[in-house]
Amino acid sequence: MSRSRTETNEADSAVVLSALGSKYSAEILCAAGTPKSAQALSEDIEIPIATCYRRIEELVDAGLLTCEGRQLSEEGRRTNIYRRTVDEIEIDFSDDTPVFSQKHRTEAKNRLHDKLTD
């Protein structure tokens, strides 16, 4: 399966770097390889739910995490389900400004992963 590699512009780079620089962001991205709610992510990496929601918002704004839909929680509330949009991020610091490239997850890879983990 192919993964597309894209480079981001300087403004996008600043947003990505800021989001990645926040505590717990990398852990959230790693845990969000499969669709999970904010509550599940919070429990998986043992961080306060308010912190998890803030980091999720930053990662969504940076395009690194996406809301895949909604599902009912055990308490019967509708909750958003998140999954990371990238498998790799490369940062090149050799120029005056950092240059980012990302390997995006394909929908085919997501579907295959979901089938294998069911």
Rank of each mutant, 00 (worst) to 15 (best):
T117F: 12
G63H: 01
A40M: 13
E68H: 02
T97P: 07
Q71W: 06
A19K: 03
I91M: 03
V99P: 09
R105W: 07
R84F: 05
A50E: 15
Y82V: 11
D87R: 10
E58Y: 01
R55I: 00
D87A: 09
E10I: 14
A38E: 00
E68S: 05
M1E: 07
F93D: 04
I47S: 00
A40V: 14
G21Q: 05
K36M: 11
F100W: 04
E88S: 09
R77E: 12
I91E: 01
A19S: 07
T66S: 15
R111L: 15
L65E: 01
L116S: 11
S25W: 08
E58W: 04
E57T: 03
V86T: 08
A108K: 06
E7S: 10
A38H: 00
R83W: 06
D114I: 14
C67V: 01
S18M: 11
E7Y: 08
D118Q: 15
D114Y: 12
R105M: 07
T51H: 10
P48Q: 15
L17Q: 15
Q39Y: 15
T51D: 13
A62W: 00
V60M: 03
T79C: 08
D44L: 15
R70Q: 11
F93C: 03
R55S: 00
Y24R: 13
E58I: 02
K103C: 07
E58H: 04
N9H: 00
L29N: 02
R111W: 13
T106D: 11
D95L: 13
N80I: 09
T6I: 12
S25Q: 10
A38W: 04
T106H: 11
L17D: 14
S73F: 06
T6P: 01
G33D: 11
L116W: 13
R77S: 09
R54V: 10
S94Y: 03
D118L: 12
T85Q: 00
L116R: 15
T106N: 13
T117S: 12
E43L: 15
K36H: 08
R77M: 06
D12W: 01
V15A: 10
L112Q: 10
M1H: 09
A50T: 14
L64G: 02
E10F: 14
A40Q: 13
D44N: 11
I56S: 08
I49N: 05
I89Y: 11
K109W: 15
T51G: 09
D96Y: 10
K115M: 15
E10K: 09
E57W: 04
N110W: 09
T66N: 14
L59W: 02
N80V: 06
T34W: 10
G33V: 12
S94H: 05
D118E: 14
S22W: 12
F93E: 04
A14E: 10
A11N: 09
D12N: 00
G76V: 06
C52P: 00
S94Q: 02
Y53I: 03
D92A: 01
R84I: 05
Y82F: 08
E58S: 08
T51P: 06
I56Y: 11
T34Y: 13
K36R: 13
L72S: 08
A14C: 06
D96L: 07
I56D: 04
Q71D: 09
T6H: 01
L20Q: 07
I91K: 02
E75C: 02
E74S: 09
R84G: 03
T34R: 12
S73M: 11
